[in-house]
Design a protein around this nucleic acid. Sequence first.
DNA 1: GTACTCAACTAAATCGCGTTAGTAAAGAGT
DNA 2: ACTCTTTACTAACGCGATTTAGTTGAGTAC
Lengths: 343, 343
Amino acid sequence: MSLKKLAEHLGLSPATVSLVINRSSVADSIPQDTKDRIFAAARKFKYRPNFLARSLRTQRSFTIGVIVPEVSDGYSASVMSGVEDYLLQEGYFYFVASHRHRADLIDEYPRMFLERSVDGLIAVDTPWHLNLSVPVVTVSGHNDVKGVTNIVLNHHRAAEVALKHLFHLGHRQIAFMKGQEFSSDTEARWANIARVAQHLGLTIHPRLVAQLEGDSPSPQLGYMATKVLLASREPFTALFAFNDISAMGAIRALRESGRHVPDDVSVVGFDDIQSAAFQNPSLTTVRQPLREMGRAAAEILLKRINRPGSELQEKHVVEPELVIRETTCPAPDGKRVPGKQRP
Amino acid sequence: MSLKKLAEHLGLSPATVSLVINRSSVADSIPQDTKDRIFAAARKFKYRPNFLARSLRTQRSFTIGVIVPEVSDGYSASVMSGVEDYLLQEGYFYFVASHRHRADLIDEYPRMFLERSVDGLIAVDTPWHLNLSVPVVTVSGHNDVKGVTNIVLNHHRAAEVALKHLFHLGHRQIAFMKGQEFSSDTEARWANIARVAQHLGLTIHPRLVAQLEGDSPSPQLGYMATKVLLASREPFTALFAFNDISAMGAIRALRESGRHVPDDVSVVGFDDIQSAAFQNPSLTTVRQPLREMGRAAAEILLKRINRPGSELQEKHVVEPELVIRETTCPAPDGKRVPGKQRP
DNA sequence: GTACTCAACTAAATCGCGTTAGTAAAGAGT
DNA sequence: ACTCTTTACTAACGCGATTTAGTTGAGTAC
């Protein structure tokens, strides 16, 4: 059912029908009963305007593109969930594409999105350097491209709550995991850990810093990184993992080496993915409000699309939250800071 | 950059440029050097045909709609990953929408997809009854709508491998979880469990069947269902959970009640999601090839879109696989079937 | 009676492309 | 010299809407 046929059936011109259906102010002078007739016919024939045609004409597709490392990864999926929540509610749809860390795809997909006339783009945990003709919002990462809004965690606070927690439990020999270089969070996270450690008077032993190796996040990466840590024979009583997934692998490696979690080694994760609470022992972790970050990304993007004039918000900072569960406890050697430990 | 401008710049008509770029056979008579000029100019101006216009004209959008219960749920996300894999490779893009079990959205989203001229639809774990004007493929579930292809697990085999495993380990008092009614898998799964149990001579005690209650899959649901099971005081030595997520909750509930997994109670999950392998103890589970199911869905859908004449494949069955890990062991009461136990 | 206003519409252009039917010019055949 | 083919294109319509700049007829003012 097209506008033209509907108009023909009504004995009106397509123009009139279009104006009425879109509630244009030009249609103000059209009498109510004509309008009613039009609406009635539209309902009767289940008329739905063709989005392609409308988008072609108006140059607005009400579609946005989302690029993520991998849809099935819990991090991306949680962010997407928030993005979707807001977009659908506002009548927008979205395309998704997973680049799987392939540089060519990271370049290509945004172009393909533009080819398909998206009104804007959201990039999740993806290094960004392009300057496109549509608004772009990135989630996570330290992107300094002019003109893109960045939704980012307060990394300083995240490092602070985690390290202070461990510090107050008496931990002094703390091992760390560094994320892969391609993750846009890696750098900011690490810089802040270093800063907070210094502030607390903690020294980070270089042999207690393990590098996560591998493309797709999997417990396996944390497992292997922890094996390296253990092989160095440098003692540690706590481990701050890069994320919950790698923490799971780490716990397994620790356990295989005969260490008990948390009695021998405390472990702190990052993200607070769903299953973190149901690990055994349940995971102490720094929660990132991923859904909220996705929602914020979508909201800010639509704002920028619909008010092109307004000044650009370069950063939107969200706050982490320490979720204390069962993988952390006082350090075994008893170097407790008097009066400061928490139960 | 549009066709028209490109043509103008070349001193040719848009028709010619279009024919050449689309490698139409009508362009056979056009000399190679003209073609070269056209391609060179297209590259120079980075000409990309406008998808909206092309789709409007050809009535093919190279876009498909995917409807899932919730993108951030691992099950949907894994299937989507497979779907995406195939679609992008074939030059298709896709919309996603999560219905979150709201009946109105399950109705509305497919309509909105059609409004946006998708060439086909994939529904993941979603009850289906509509008969649409485009090809539809559903993943999982027992949909008997004429004209839709259904990608489905061999549920009989799934029940068989799980129950035989437990049976051969000596388990006779086995507890079960039934999925929520809205999950399209629930019925087929349960029917087959009953069938296999009967075949093995196992009786299913009605008080050892717990119902999962709640919309979004979460360990919490399994936790609560297991609490109910325990409250019945009916003894059991094994538990077949509805999925891995609920198995995680179940293990916690069992542990809280003082039971040890697997020594007191063996647990079998379903799906084999990523974190199943990294639970402690790691989860024995019936693996569903979710990615492959997604890929198959996409592949079959595109086949149906591109060969509208070909006869309809109503079902595509995929095989489950038992992954034996650490949550199952011989039954404590020693009712082993001689010569049949596996280590 | 003329000019002006207003209500109720509509014609026509446009968005960017695909496609069919056709045309003009050159060459080939007789 | 005439017809026929072939080559190398192009005009024009349509896809399904939106939107601007009118048009028409009735009513009102003077």
